[in-house]
Amino acid sequence: MSRQRAIGLDVGGTKIAGGVVDADGTVLTELVEPTPEDSDAEAVLAVLLDIVERLRAKHDDVAAIGVGAAGIVEWPQGRMLWAPNNAYRDWPVREQLEAATGLPAVIDNDANVAALAEARLGPRPYRHLVLITVGTGIGGGLVQDGRIYRGPTGRGAELGHIVLNPDGPVCGCGNHGCFEAYASGTALTRMGREAAADDPDGLIARLGAERGEVTGQTVTAAAGQGDPTALDLFGRLGRWLGVGIASLANIFELEVVVVGGGLVSTGDLLLAPARRAAREFAYAREARATAPIVAATFGGDAGMVGAALLALDEGRTSVG
């Protein structure tokens, strides 16, 4: 009997990744395309179908399609109801993918599927885990007793939108002071631009002028050169990340907190201040263990791998 494989698709605010994945999490082929600038449903669907077609041309034995996408997904219907950094609303993506490809499909929040990948295929199996994905925004996935927690309709575990400060900066979701507004790549870009405006002769401003604008990548590059202002910004970003993690750990008894997303590639620039803050704000440290904070095993592939695993889990009945 051949090994089961599925296509995993990870839809983010800036890029869409797709790959053919084995049941053990091995990525056999991977493709990446930019998210369309208008990011509406029709444009995003066209990219998804193009990726699926190209992957199936190389692997004709895929059993199902899984999609992880930022935003609120109606479970198990597979409708993308809303996304903070994309234009689609009330999008029946599961229905459209199945009609266009003839394969069973499953759709879930991107951080949910990434959490599934980390819990099942990380350094060891975990049954109680929180995943925080730090990228353009902040996603969150919660695994409790070995299963993704979604709430009754899939709208649960929007961890990136717990409110840390109601008087804080505007978040992409429209509220003020969300976790995402303080500890994401978007937050790093905002802080970097503020720093460049305050110090036009500083390294962040100069690198931004060379690149056309100041972004989170500009701040990261400046930090890599030892710039004190950039290092301070990462300290602030990481501290807010730790504050949010402490709040979650105070609610749930966790075996581990996994941090993924693009910014985790900066390593201890982000994670060291996050660990300090998580310990500082942990409740009853004398009576309960502080869950370790670790970098994601799968890096940028977590959403793609988790989406494929979920597709294999949920699609077996349809596949036969």
Rank of each mutant, 00 (worst) to 15 (best):
S2C: 07
F179M: 01
P292G: 05
F252Q: 04
T189I: 07
L271N: 03
A115Y: 01
I65C: 12
M304G: 01
A114Y: 10
L237W: 02
M304C: 07
P84S: 08
A308C: 08
G242R: 08
E280L: 13
I132Y: 04
V44M: 06
R285K: 15
V93I: 15
V264W: 00
G244P: 04
G299D: 12
E286D: 15
P228R: 00
E118G: 01
A221L: 09
A17L: 14
I132L: 15
R285F: 09
A57P: 12
A100P: 00
A291E: 06
R279C: 10
G137Y: 04
D10W: 03
F281N: 12
F179N: 01
D301H: 13
N109F: 03
T133F: 00
G102H: 05
G102R: 06
A43W: 09
R236K: 10
D60F: 02
D227I: 03
D60E: 15
G185N: 06
A100S: 13
A287F: 07
D167A: 11
Y182W: 04
R193Q: 14
P273M: 03
I7G: 02
V130N: 01
W82N: 01
I132P: 08
Q144Y: 07
A115L: 05
G235I: 05
G102V: 06
T14C: 09
V20C: 07
A17D: 11
A249K: 02
A277H: 06
D301K: 15
R3M: 15
A291Q: 09
G261I: 00
L97H: 13
E210K: 14
I107M: 11
A274C: 12
E210R: 13
R54C: 08
G102M: 05
L164R: 10
L263Y: 01
G299Y: 11
Q77C: 10
I162L: 13
A278R: 07
R288H: 15
T215L: 04
G160E: 01
G261L: 02
A69G: 12
D301V: 13
G185D: 07
E194I: 15
V163W: 10
H161Y: 04
N112F: 02
A277E: 08
Y126N: 08
A114S: 11
A291T: 13
A307C: 13
G140A: 10
L271E: 02
V134W: 03
C173S: 06
I16Y: 02
G140H: 04
P169D: 14
R127C: 08
N250W: 10
W82F: 07
V243I: 14
G78C: 01
T29V: 12
G156N: 02
I293S: 02
V11G: 00
H161I: 08
Q225I: 04
F179T: 00
E180T: 06
E194C: 07
V106H: 00
A272R: 02
G260M: 06
G140S: 12
P34Y: 05
W240H: 15
G25Y: 04
G68P: 11
